[in-house]
Each structure stands twice: as structure tokens, then as C-alpha cells.
Design a protein around this nucleic acid. Structure first.
Lengths: 192, 192
DNA sequence: ACTCGAACACAAAACTATTATGGTCGAATT
DNA sequence: AATTCGACCATAATAGTTTTGTGTTCGAGT
């Protein structure tokens, strides 16, 4: 997808409608109407409904990455970089309805293309964590053996931050939970 | 439930049938037949199908707790106790089909009584982790500020161990992942 | 106290008909 | 040539109806 204006309009209107109704409830007809064209014309620009949704998710992912890059750019320590990465990702995932849906909605998990999106996202996450660990090690801040396994363990732990605790269990504010978990991951609980 | 032999027979046969067919697919009629009684007679001993399942889950939970107690009894350090606790729990949850189902199956999550079972289990988990942290602190091994929040953060991290990663992502053996995560939680990644 | 056949209310499943939806095709328009 | 779209297709989804299954109750019997 280059700079085709029609394609961008379709993507934009689709982004809005998908984010309100979700992938399944949004019809191709609705998107076409909102883009002021006939339904059949859409297929000149996109191969399928799935293609449109993929494009929308990729657009949101680019936005998310840019926002994270901006936030991290002036941080100097790997600890701060990791914290900002996690918090910004959580924050923007809440706003970006389509990528959130693609990554989190249970009813979408049997679609092969959704599985691919989730896989790509997980790989990017693991990569980012691994890079940050490497950076910290290079700077003599972190001391790590088996960096791959460490990246994986940390990624797993961070997934646990989204665990759906029962409503009757009083759980802390997400940010203090992130802070505390990162503090533990960085410094450990064994006396120094 | 005291020592009523009929009730114990019902519970035992129900445990078997529930673990094969699951809560929803198991009929009261089947349980009655297996216990060699009429369907209506069951209601003399249990108030409902739900009551039978609860009894079965409680039975399995008692068994699980006893197995963990036995495994931990000779361990001396809080680190070892925590590791054994996590691994044993994972191991027995895999074997004890009914409590596993009660805690994990998505299709059961809208039942109020299942939510209660999950809540109770989470509270027990948090309690166990908190106790172990306290033990470690009392022994001068751990240094913790805000023990409640720390217990919560660690519990969250451990929930992440069960995250369903995509099949195309090569993830490590569960035990090495547990080991690595615990190592990080205990010692941190910042150079000592 | 314990047992169970019969019945109940309604949930679940099966079946049938109708409508909606993603996608295609070819002709028309720009 | 690029773009548009009406009409149509195959089938998925939905709606409506009927049938069967299931948890539970009740009252009579042992």
C-alpha cells in the first residue's frame, strides 16, 4: 500500500467502523458506503475484508511503535526504557481498538490471519525485551546468563500483568503493579 | 460432608465421570446410575448438580494441598519452598481434571459458583506467596518493602507462565522457564 | 429415613426457511 | 486503461418452529 488516496480513505473509514463494531459485525457494504463507493469497487483496492482489517491493524501498529519510539528516545537507562515501553504499550493498546481486538479478543483466535498477527506481535515483544537486556548488559548494568531464556521469562511475567483477577480480589493500580514487578525483576528480593 | 458412605460413593463416581466428560456434558442420571441409585435419590444427598461438582473440586483441592505440604516439608529455604510449591501445583493441576477445569475452562467462567472457586484459589495462592515472603524476610534472606504488593506482583508474574504463546514461537520447557523466572525474581538482573 | 416413578419447566438441540454477506463477473463509464 | 457498479452467486448467519433432553420436585411406597 503506497500513497493511493482511495486506499487510504478506505483504510481510514474502515478503521473507524471496525473500532466501533468489531471485525465480525462490520460489513463490507458499510465500509463502501462510508468511503462513498459501491461495494464491488472496494475489491479493486483490497482483496478481501480480511485484507482491509490487516491494513488497519498494521497502520495502528506503526502508530504504536512511533509513539513508543518518541517516548523512549530521551531515556538513558535500560530500566527506564523498559518501563516506558511497557506502560506506553499498555496505554496505546487501550486506545487503538483494532490492534487491541486483534491481539486480545477470544472470539477471533481461530482465524489464521489473527494468529499470524499475534505471533508477529509476540516476536516483536520478545525482540524488544532482548535488545533492552543486551543494551543493559553492554553497559555493565545487567548481568545475565542465557539472554534468550531471560527475555522469555520476563515476557511471560509481563503477560501475567493482564491476568483477569476476580473482582472480589482487591488488586493494585496497574502502574504500581508494573513498578513493583519491574523493581523485583531488576533488583530481586534476595537481600543485596 | 461428614462420613456418610453413600455421599462418598456419589462423590467418587461423580469425580470419575466429571473428569471424563466435564461438568456440562455429565448428566445427573449418569452419576445416579454409576452410584446404583435412582436419579431422584441423589437429591437426598446433594442439593444440586452444582453441589456435587463443588464437593468433587473441594476433594481434589484437599488432595492437592496435602501433596504440596508433603513435598515442601523438608525444604529449608524460602526459595526452594516457592519453587516446589509452583512446580507441584502445576503438576497436580494437570492430573486433577476437575479442579483444573474449574480454574481454567473458559466456557465455565460465567457460572457464579465457578467464579467463587477461582476467587478462593487465587486468595490461597496470594496467601501462600505472602507467607513465603514473610518467612524469607524473617530469616534475613529477603528484603522486601510493601510485602502485599510484592506478593501480588509475583503472583501476577507466575500467572504469565501459563500464557498461550503462538505455536510458531519456540518456547522453553516449562521447568526451565520456572527456574529462570524464579532466579530473576530472587536475584534480579541488575549486577550485584 | 430412604427410595424412586412420574411429572414439570425450560434449556438445548435439531430442523426448516429466510435473509444477509463476502465476493465475482462483465458491462458501462471515465 | 483505469475505475465503477448492478446483478448475481454460494453459503454463512439468523430467525422461527418443533422435538428432545435435563435438572429438579413431589408424593407415594418401602
Amino acid at each position: 500500500m503506497k500513497d493511493n488516496p482511495k486506499k487510504q480513505i478506505i483504510t481510514q473509514v474502515a478503521q473507524n467502523i471496525f473500532s466501533r463494531h468489531g471485525l465480525l459485525k462490520t460489513t463490507v457494504y458499510e465500509i463502501a458506503k462510508a468511503a462513498r463507493m459501491g461495494k464491488a469497487s472496494l475489491y479493486h483496492y483490497f482483496q478481501s475484508k480480511e485484507d482491509i482489517f490487516k491494513e488497519v491493524v498494521e497502520k495502528e501498529n506503526r502508530f504504536l511503535k512511533e509513539k513508543i519510539r518518541e517516548a523512549i528516545i530521551n531515556e538513558d537507562t535500560p530500566q527506564k526504557k523498559m518501563k516506558i515501553y511497557i506502560l506506553k504499550k499498555m496505554e496505546y493498546l487501550r486506545e487503538l481498538a483494532n490492534i487491541h481486538s486483534a491481539l486480545k479478543d477470544d472470539y477471533l483466535e481461530h482465524y489464521a490471519f489473527i494468529e499470524k498477527i499475534r505471533e508477529k506481535n509476540s516476536k516483536e515483544e520478545l525482540f524488544t525485551i532482548r535488545e533492552t537486556l543486551q543494551d543493559g548488559e553492554d553497559k555493565g548494568i545487567f548481568e545475565i546468563n542465557d539472554i534468550e531464556l531471560t527475555a522469555f521469562a520476563i515476557a511471560s511475567a509481563l503477560k501475567g500483568l493482564e491476568y483477569p483477577w476476580s473482582i472480589n480480589i482487591s488488586f493494585p493500580e496497574i502502574e504500581s503493579n508494573v513498578d513493583k514487578l519491574l523493581e523485583i525483576l531488576f533488583n530481586g528480593i534476595v537481600k543485596r
